[in-house]
Design a binder for these strands. Structure first.
Lengths: 153, 153
DNA sequence: ACCAGGTATGTGACACGTCAACTAACGGGT
DNA sequence: ACCCGTTAGTTGACGTGTCACATACCTGGT
């Protein structure tokens, strides 16, 4: 690798814009969520995935796969959420290695309470600022990049 | 707020895609950078900003503004980078409150060494996967959202 | 000269994520 | 029945980011 192909002005604008977007948009949406529901985005992701499962519970490994999180990350996060009473760990019947993560009634209530505000926050700061065409392209971009990284859609 | 306007399928796709993109793309690019240069993306951002300043040094507050970082975040990060010899703090002549962050020769060398590989990584995982039109729209999206958040371009 | 309020920066506690190492249990071949 | 490799999940150390607070210094009105 002698002379690298530097980024074009458009590419540089997109890259720096993306980095800045990531920093500021996420900070803002996270702050909204924390302030009106006392949850982090991670909490929300975990709980909304659990809420979509049979009986609002599923295996820890399965949950990690849905979230595309490392097992370690999820394990640490479940420990923190368990302390706050949002989720509970249960034994896996039939495979003593396995563990089940279950949404507690308190967690389920917190999620339902947080959802409308969270959606409104995403709308206000992101969707309502974009044209439908831009929304579509953003989805395409994510899909293309993730496909290249070898992930499922 | 009674019935929230939920996200449309396109919006949901864009939002979840964005979240997943953020997790996976950044992890990948960060890993590349760490492996071939021993730097984090944050290190790279700090150093590339410093390298664009007069004398490769500037006030800590000014640097925080360029990066759109909180002062606290930058202060913590400078402390860590200082330990590794990448930057140095200097006194501000004329205002004893102020501090100057300066790129050390070692930091400057590390940055020049890291740059080509980092650019290649961004190309490989992001730019080369997108059409020029998608790159342009991504830049537009970032600009629109950041403008709404009250930030400068 | 003094002090009130603002400015520039640092620090400590804690939440979050990664990596690597660890424990425990399953399961197939002998 | 007993290994051995694989699988599921946890843990500890450490880097990173936030918030709240502390500190030091400047500056303008009195």
């Amino acid at each position: 690798m002698n002379e690298p192909r530097w980024l074009s002005p458009d590419e540089m604008r997109a890259w720096l814009g993306y980095r800045r977007l990531r920093n500021l948009l996420d900070a803002r949406i996270a702050r909204d969520l924390t302030e009106d529901a006392g949850l982090s985005e991670q909490d929300y992701d975990v709980m909304s995935n659990l809420s979509a499962c049979e009986g609002r519970r599923t295996g820890v490994g399965d949950l990690a796969a849905r979230l595309r999180w490392s097992h370690s990350r999820l394990s640490h996060h479940l420990t923190r959420m368990e302390k706050r009473g949002l989720v509970a760990r249960e034994e896996h019947p039939g495979d003593a290695r396995g563990a089940i993560a279950a949404l507690t009634p308190a967690g389920w209530a917190a999620l339902r309470e947080a959802a409308p505000g969270h959606v409104a926050s995403v709308r206000e700061h992101l969707m309502d600022v974009l044209t439908p065409e831009q929304v579509r392209v953003l989805g395409d971009v994510a899909e293309a990049v993730l496909a290249r990284l070898g992930q499922r859609t």
